[in-house]
């Protein structure tokens, strides 16, 4: 279990086994580098957020977090991330299934492109999506007559979040689907199960832990995402303003306390999510 109250032990001497210290050199040096660098770059700065937030006291924190604008942004960030993650779960599963199970021309090319959201800078994705979905864009121009607005609207947030979360589900589900034994499906067939029953009762239950993990990863990424969203969202206060943007706005207003309070809340939520993913995976591993 990755996160538990045992952090302090890392610094104790008991963690090296004498035998291995003799066999291979470099333990002290490399662990030293790792821990110092990790602490300096990640742990101490992150702890600083909580330290600063603690200085505000409960009242100060609640005051910032309960303002209507913050609540609206949290609702949008988490709500849109949820919708995008569900969308990605459905289509990610479909894409993973098609790429693992079927052969078709152009498969390898498309497979490489699935990782595009990992490789493409978020700002580039942001302006490209905006150009597509704006009223005069390639896609927007067909949606606008139908009364559907995506750019400068909460829907735009969902679109951007779907884009950046897309590879998570595909890449977590693919290996599980690939390792599924062909014999399980054959066994189901010999027992009289049709294809649909085999898929819903035999294949999907074995995939769903991976699917849930991919869903959670896509969700976590979407909640924290900034670059690709701010261009398409329009950033209208109370309507299409995401939480990370609000942090930046507070900073620009030199409201460091407000920014810290929101950041601490977001950090806590993402840690809880991470913890939940890890606990869930440990539980699945134990069960299998």
């Amino acid at each position: 279990m990755p996160i538990h109250p045992g952090t302090a032990r890392i610094h104790s001497v008991s963690l090296r086994t004498a035998q291995q210290r003799r066999a291979i050199p470099g333990f002290g040096l490399t662990l030293g580098i790792t821990l110092s660098y990790l602490s300096l770059i990640v742990l101490i700065p992150l702890a600083g957020v909580y330290f600063k937030a603690a200085g505000l006291g409960w009242d100060g924190l609640l005051h910032t977090l309960s303002s209507a604008r913050v609540l609206a942004s949290l609702k949008l960030s988490f709500g849109a991330a949820l919708i995008a993650a569900i969308f990605n779960a459905v289509f990610g599963l479909l894409v993973a299934w098609v790429f693992v199970r079927y052969r078709f021309p152009g498969k390898r090319l498309f497979d490489a492109f699935i990782d595009l959201p990992f490789a493409l800078p978020t700002a580039v994705a942001g302006i490209a999506l905006t150009a597509l979905y704006a009223g005069n864009g390639w896609i927007g121009r067909y949606l606008e007559p139908l009364g559907i607005q995506i750019a400068y609207h909460p829907l735009g947030v969902v679109v951007a979040m779907t884009f950046i979360g897309l590879p998570f589900v595909v890449r977590t589900v693919e290996p599980v689907l690939a390792e599924a034994e062909k014999e399980l499906e054959e066994a189901a067939a010999t027992l009289g199960a049709g294809r649909w029953i085999t898929i819903t009762r035999v294949i999907l239950p074995s995939v769903w832990p991976a699917l849930l993990t991919g869903f959670a990863l896509a969700f976590a990424r979407a909640v924290g995402e900034y670059g690709s969203i701010i261009f398409i969202a329009g950033n209208i206060p109370m309507v299409s303003e995401i939480t990370p943007l609000l942090i930046i706005i507070k900073l620009e207003e030199f409201d460091y306390a407000g920014a810290t309070a929101i950041a601490a809340a977001m950090l806590t939520l993402s840690f809880l999510l991470l913890l939940a993913i890890n606990l869930f995976q440990a539980w699945v591993r134990r069960k299998r």
């Binding site: 034994e181 014999e183 399980l184 054959e186 066994a187 189901a188 067939a189 010999t190 009289g192 199960a193 049709g194 035999v202 239950p205 074995s206 299998r288």
Partner: peptide, 20 residues
């Protein structure tokens, strides 16, 4: 089809449904 033949098939590596 396989489903219509009603044969019992036992696989070398059991092929039990792990989640059931």
């Amino acid at each position: 089809s396989v489903q219509e033949r009603r044969v019992g098939f036992v696989f070398q590596h059991y092929a039990l449904f792990k989640h059931m």
